[in-house]
Design a protein around this nucleic acid. Structure first.
Lengths: 166, 166
DNA sequence: CGTATATCAGATAGACTGACATTC
DNA sequence: CGAATGTCAGTCAATCTGATATAC
């Protein structure tokens, strides 16, 4: 049984026609990963918006939440985890603090460093948002069988191991 | 044989610890797709830069190149294919025209419409860049077996069919 | 002294919206 | 006239860089 063709197939066919000298097969996997991510983004954003959050706001709050009680991390830990620069982190935290979702407290053990902590409302909000987010993701994936998802995870994990800085 | 754990596994473990009430399994697939795309981006950009191109410049030129001789499309066709607004397309074309990579010509069949065409240097550049791009992608994927790539394509294609607007 | 932490100001790149003129 | 095409000006959100102050 042949699978349905998607737009990446159409692009590959065009390249094959125009550049028969090239073996463009690597475009198939990488193109699909990128296109999936691109199409996923607005679907996820739609859920975040219901909680007044943007994607990056969700990321910061979720990172703090995952860290466990007392839900605080230093800015350095945050921007390292989120793969952004320190200056960007400062900007993000300013915004989240203005919304009352995080508070900045002094780090008793190192006066250079701050600790960013989820506020009560920040904690309550991210807990609700994560619940909805996972449900949204579940809904998006509901058309795929558990077996396929398991396979996909294993394969993507292989790729991720290659891509991740060691 | 168990697969190597990646950072997504670590995130899932944190969520399991902190929110045992949630079944976060959908995060595994979607998280990996997004993280792969995120890590892939700079790897691809690095190749484009060798040709003085940004990612979006490459996208526009590649779309024109794939269309086949005479390598011209209307702006409307371009921004639809690239999923951006018309205003953004105008900006992009202005930049590419300034670099001499495309030319704008009148559409003889519809005076409202323009045709954007690859210039000689634009064609030569994108042909070189695509060759290098595919080789770069091939190198990135070289650690995965052809069988795994085939499986991954089939699974991602299933997901893409769900995500793509019909 | 040299390194690490965090912040800030300024610059930048990229995108979007809404108004517009033109043509179908 | 209503719809479509492309352009433009203006705005915006998000990022980065480099300089700075402080503390280890």
């Amino acid at each position: 049984m042949k699978r349905k063709t998607d737009r990446v197939d159409a692009i590959l066919a065009q390249w094959h026609q125009e550049r028969p000298d090239l073996d463009v097969s690597p475009m198939a996997s990488i193109g699909r990963i990128r296109r999936c991510a691109q199409l996923l983004q607005p679907r996820l954003d739609g859920c975040f918006e219901k909680f007044g959050l943007s994607s990056w706001e969700f990321d910061v709050l979720a990172t703090l939440r995952r860290a466990g009680a007392p839900h605080c991390l230093a800015p350095t830990a945050l921007f390292s985890a989120l793969m952004i620069t320190s200056g960007t982190m400062t900007q993000r935290l300013k915004g989240l603090e203005a919304k009352g979702l995080v508070v900045r407290i002094q780090n008793a053990e190192d006066a250079r460093s701050m600790l960013v902590q989820l506020s009560h409302s920040g904690l309550a909000l991210i807990d609700q948002a994560v619940t909805a987010h996972v449900e949204n993701e579940r809904q998006i994936l509901s058309a795929l069988t558990p077996e396929k998802l398991t396979q996909m995870n294993a394969l993507l994990s292989d790729l991720l191991s290659i891509l991740e800085p060691e």
